[in-house]
């Protein structure tokens, strides 16, 4: 994997062309995604940022093959996306751990489903459990863990399946601020150690600025690409540097303007 990394750097791993999604509701249709064009490079940390509750999760679900595409096409590695893609892993807002499996059971689920032998998959799972800092908790059930720890399991589970692309759907939305900062640092650290393409959905500006190589700002219902920012601030970023704050100001005003001062989420 590592040998090809440098060469492929500029070639998009994901190409979205005029993606649209409409849902059938009782009185007609609702359009949640409207003509999104987006290229994502390999190993890029892309943040999808938007204030509303609309479209972002659906977009991730489409990438994971959990949701059908109403219009347009998604190509991964220049191949049309159809159904599930083993190259994609996902971290969920609600952690969505299997409550009847231990930490180890959750993390090794993917390799096990693909029929990888016990010693090999457990070695691998152990590596990722260690990586997310849960050493010693292998035999715990999710209900015994705190929210932050549960989300670490979710991250380890996604990585352990060897995806090239990891989708994170507001993974820290339910966590308290302090834990959230810790988890953001953690994700950045893991991403630097284990380079993967990450698509991260959030509605928190600081989180977006702290993590992103590039922030794509989406409009609210239906979701369209409003604009995008390339973030070049060197990592690890300080939340109070001048650069950071001015960007934060800029994006906030942009979003506020769009929402017209409405109480949007």
């Amino acid at each position: 994997m590592d040998s090809t990394k440098q060469v492929k750097k500029e070639k998009p791993i994901i190409t979205m062309e005029r993606i649209s999604k409409t849902f059938q509701v009782e009185d007609g249709e609702v359009k949640v995604i409207d003509q999104i064009d987006l290229d994502i490079r390999e190993n890029e940390f892309l943040v999808l940022f938007g204030a509303g509750q609309c479209g972002k999760t659906t977009l991730l679900k489409m990438l994971a093959g959990l949701e059908t595409i109403s219009g347009g096409s998604i190509k991964i590695d220049e191949k049309e996306l159809k159904g599930f893609n083993p190259k994609v892993g996902m971290v969920y807002q609600t952690t969505a751990l299997f409550p009847w499996l231990t930490v180890m059971g959750n993390v090794e689920f993917g390799p096990k489903a693909r029929g990888i032998g016990k010693t090999e998959r457990q070695k691998k799972a152990q590596y990722y459990i260690d990586l997310v800092g849960l050493t010693g908790f292998e035999k715990h059930f999710p209900s015994m863990l705190s929210g932050g720890m549960q989300q670490r399991v979710g991250i380890a589970r996604a990585y352990c399946n060897d995806p090239e692309i990891i989708l994170m759907d507001e993974p820290f939305g339910h966590l308290d601020a302090q834990t959230r900062y810790m988890m953001e640092e953690e994700v950045e650290k893991i991403w630097q150690e284990e380079k993967r393409t990450i698509i991260f959905v959030t509605n928190n500006i600081e989180e977006a600025l702290y993590l992103a190589d590039r922030i794509v700002i989406l409009t609210e219902c239906p979701a369209r690409v409003l604009t995008e920012y390339k973030i070049d601030i060197p990592r690890p970023r300080s939340l109070v540097s001048e650069e950071f704050l001015s960007l934060r100001e800029e994006i906030s005003s942009l979003v506020d303007l769009r929402e017209g001062g409405n109480d949007a989420e």
Binding site: M90, T94, R157
Partner: peptide, 10 residues
């Protein structure tokens, strides 16, 4: 959602 997770995990 758990069914979805399992599907994504292959």
């Amino acid at each position: 959602e758990l069914v979805g997770v399992a599907k994504v995990l292959g």
